[in-house]
Amino acid sequence: MRKATNAHIQAKRLLENCGLDEITDLDMDLFIAGLDAMLIEEELSNCDGKIIFGNSKAVIKVNSKIQFPERKRFVAAHEIGHLIMHKNMQLPDDTFANFNIIEGMENALKNGKQELEANEFASELLMPESLFYKEAKGKKFSPLLIKQLSERFKTSLTATIFRYIQFEQLHPLCLVFIENGKVRYWKKSDSLIVWMGDYNRLSPPSDSVAVEYLQNNYDFIYKLEEKAQTINKSTWFNLNQYEEDTPFYEYCIPTRRYKTILSIIWED
Rank of each mutant, 00 (worst) to 15 (best):
H8M: 08
A11E: 03
A11P: 07
R13A: 13
L15F: 04
G19Y: 03
I23A: 06
T24A: 14
D25Q: 13
L26M: 14
D27Q: 11
D29A: 07
L30S: 13
F31N: 06
F31M: 08
G34C: 05
G34S: 09
D36H: 14
D36W: 03
D36V: 04
L39N: 04
E41M: 09
E42R: 15
E42H: 11
E43K: 12
S45D: 14
C47H: 13
D48R: 12
G49R: 08
K50C: 12
I52Y: 00
I52A: 02
F53C: 00
G54F: 01
N55E: 12
N55S: 11
V59A: 03
K61A: 10
K61R: 15
V62K: 10
N63G: 13
S64G: 08
S64I: 05
I66R: 14
P69M: 10
R71N: 12
F74Q: 10
F74N: 05
V75S: 06
A77I: 02
A77S: 12
H78E: 07
E79R: 07
E79S: 06
H82A: 02
L83D: 00
I84W: 02
M85S: 09
M85P: 06
K87A: 11
Q90H: 09
Q90R: 10
Q90V: 09
Q90C: 01
L91I: 10
L91G: 08
P92K: 12
P92T: 05
D94T: 14
T95R: 14
F96T: 08
N100D: 05
N100K: 10
I102C: 12
I102Y: 03
I102H: 01
E103N: 11
M105G: 09
M105D: 07
N107P: 00
N107G: 12
A108S: 10
L109F: 07
K110L: 08
K110E: 10
N111P: 03
N111S: 14
G112A: 12
K113H: 04
K113T: 10
E115C: 15
E115T: 05
L116P: 02
L116S: 08
A118D: 04
A118F: 02
